[in-house]
């Protein structure tokens, strides 16, 4: 019974890791770059939502507030690609890693300057409510998290598999030059994907904030989400989500049943184990270079 309780909580927090991981994978799939500022985008998304919704700031209704926040963060994502990332196309992958790490610090500074560094709580309509099924207590925020994540994943899957822009983005990721020649607006697609990943991370941020207080350093959660993306294979949307849930479940279970310290290390131990046994992740999509 206790285990089931732990697992449900774990799945819910795993969904948040999974959503941030989705942000990583989106950008990776489209541009073959890794955005290390993803965690900080989530953080900023949560703060923007808080700034719009909380009664001492914007005092908007919850749902329109979150939608507006997602739109704003979509713009931020688009802008980051348009103004910064686009400048370094063609430089080694590593340059983008450093660039986005630096961007993460900039975002953190922005949030800290506007909202301060002390923890704040996002006002949600479902805070503190819960339901009970067969003796298991499920918080509304956990339910909402799981449902929203499932819907969002489905939407993204449809987007990449069936829409024109999604297919064009896949084409662009495999050979920018060729995609450009056949008329795919590569630059704009990339920026759109960055925007989309901003939207996804805002939703992740709001879900995260619904479970507790936030401060500008919660972006460090990005590292864990990263591990989730790697476990999932980095090119696979469902893989990222499953990786996130795996980590989310293992963490509280390890904290309960294993000696101290193991729990904090567990995501990384799983990730290293996956990398060593299957260097390209569980759902590998990457093949050797052709000569």
């Amino acid at each position: 019974m206790e285990l089931i309780q732990l697992v449900i909580g774990g799945v819910a927090s795993g969904c948040i890791y999974g959503l941030v991981a989705l942000g990583f994978v989106l950008i990776y799939k489209a541009t073959e770059g890794v955005n290390f500022a993803q965690g900080d985008m989530m953080m900023l998304g949560a703060f923007v939502a808080l700034g719009l919704v909380n009664s001492d700031y914007g005092a908007l209704a919850f749902v329109p507030g979150v939608i507006l926040a997602a739109a704003i963060m979509g713009g931020v994502g688009y802008g980051i690609d348009r103004l910064v990332v686009r400048q370094i196309i063609g430089q080694p992958q590593f340059a983008l890693v450093i660039l986005t790490i630096a961007l993460g610090f900039v975002l953190r500074f922005a949030a800290g300057t506007i909202w301060g560094f002390s923890p704040l709580v996002l006002e949600t309509p479902f805070a503190g409510q819960h339901m009970e099924i067969a003796g298991i207590i499920i918080g509304y925020e956990d339910m909402v998290t799981i449902i929203v994540t499932a819907l969002l994943t489905l939407l993204l899957w449809v987007f990449f598999g069936f829409t024109r822009i999604g297919l064009a983005a896949q084409a662009a990721s495999q050979n920018q030059m060729a995609a450009y020649i056949v008329g795919v607006p590569v630059h704009r697609i990339n920026s759109l994907i960055w925007g989309l990943s901003g939207v996804v991370s805002t939703i992740a941020g709001v879900l995260y904030a619904s479970k507790g207080a936030i401060d500008p350093n919660i972006g460090l959660l990005g590292i864990k989400a990263f591990a989730a993306a790697v476990i999932g294979g980095f090119g696979s949307l469902p893989g990222a989500l499953l990786g996130g849930i795996l980590i989310g479940v293992v963490e509280p279970v390890a904290a309960r049943y294993l000696p101290g310290g193991i729990s904090q290390m567990s995501p990384y131990i799983i990730m290293l184990a996956v990398l060593v046994t299957r260097p390209n992740g569980l759902f590998a999509q990457i093949y050797a270079k052709k000569v």
């Binding site: 063609g90 495999q174 050979n175 920018q176 450009y180 999509q285 990457i286 093949y287 052709k290």
Partner: peptide, 9 residues
Amino acid sequence: SYLKTERQR
């Protein structure tokens, strides 16, 4: 320069 993928698929 353009991004050239190292992926084959």
